[in-house]
Simulated scan of single mutants.
Amino acid sequence: MTHIDTISISSDIKKQNHLIIAGLVFVIASIIIFINADLYAKTPDSYAPVVVRGLTTFSFLFFGGITAFLLFKKKDDKVLYMNNKGIIDQTNASSVGLIEWEDIVEIEAKNIFSGKFLLITVKDPEKYLQKAPIWKKIILKLNALTAKTPFSITLNSLQLDAETTTELVKENYRKFKFNE
C-alpha cells in the first residue's frame, strides 16, 4: 500500500470574513423586511405580508445559521485533510468527515451556482449517509439533486486556489487507488 503523508489545507480567513459580512447583511435585511412586511399589502385582506414574513424568516434562519457557523468556527482550523486512508472533509456544515479512497469512484471539479466544488462519487453513499444526523441527510440529499452526488468539497473558502486543491486531491487519489 502506498503511504501518503498527511496533507492539510486551511480555510482562507479573508474569504471567511467576507462571507460573515455578507451573511450579516442578509440577516439584517431579513429583519428589516420582516418588520415592514405590511407595506407589501395592496388590500386589507392581502396574504402578501404573511408570505413576505415566511420568506424572510427562512432567509433569516438560513443566513443566520451559516453566519453563526462561520463566526463560531475556529479561524485557524484546517478544514481539508488527505492521508493514506482518504479525504477528511470539514469544509462546510454538511461535510461527512472521512471519505475513504477505496470507496471513491470519481472525483470531479464543477462550478455550481457560481461556487467551485469537488464532487465525490462513492460506491455506497448509504455507508456515509447512515452516520449523518437527519438535518445533514436532508442537506446531502438536496446536494445530490443538484450535483448528482451528495458529497461535495467546497473549494471557494480554502487557502489554496480551486485548481491547485483539485489537482492535489486527484493526485493523491491516483497514488492510493492505482499505486501510481
Rank of each mutant, 00 (worst) to 15 (best):
H3W: 12
H3R: 11
D5C: 03
T6E: 11
S8V: 12
S8Q: 15
S8C: 11
D12T: 10
D12Q: 11
I13M: 00
H18P: 05
L19Y: 14
I21H: 12
V25Q: 05
A29C: 11
Y40D: 12
A41L: 13
P44R: 14
A48P: 14
V50N: 09
V51C: 08
V52R: 04
V52E: 05
R53E: 14
L55S: 13
T56V: 11
T56W: 04
F58H: 06
L61M: 10
A68L: 04
L70A: 07
L70M: 09
K74Y: 06
D76E: 10
Y81W: 15
N84D: 15
K85C: 01
I87Q: 02
Q90K: 13
V96L: 03
I99W: 14
I99M: 07
E100D: 02
W101E: 08
I104D: 00
I104K: 09
V105N: 12
E108M: 07
A109M: 07
N111Q: 07
I112P: 08
L118K: 12
L118R: 12
L119Y: 06
T121A: 04
V122I: 09
Y128C: 01
I134G: 01
K136I: 14
K137V: 03
I138G: 06
I139T: 02
A144Q: 07
A144H: 02
K148Q: 09
K148M: 05
F151L: 07
S152Q: 05
I153R: 14
S157M: 10
S157E: 06
L160E: 03
A162C: 06
T166C: 06
K170W: 15
N172Y: 14
R174A: 06
K175E: 10
F176R: 13
F176W: 13
F178V: 10
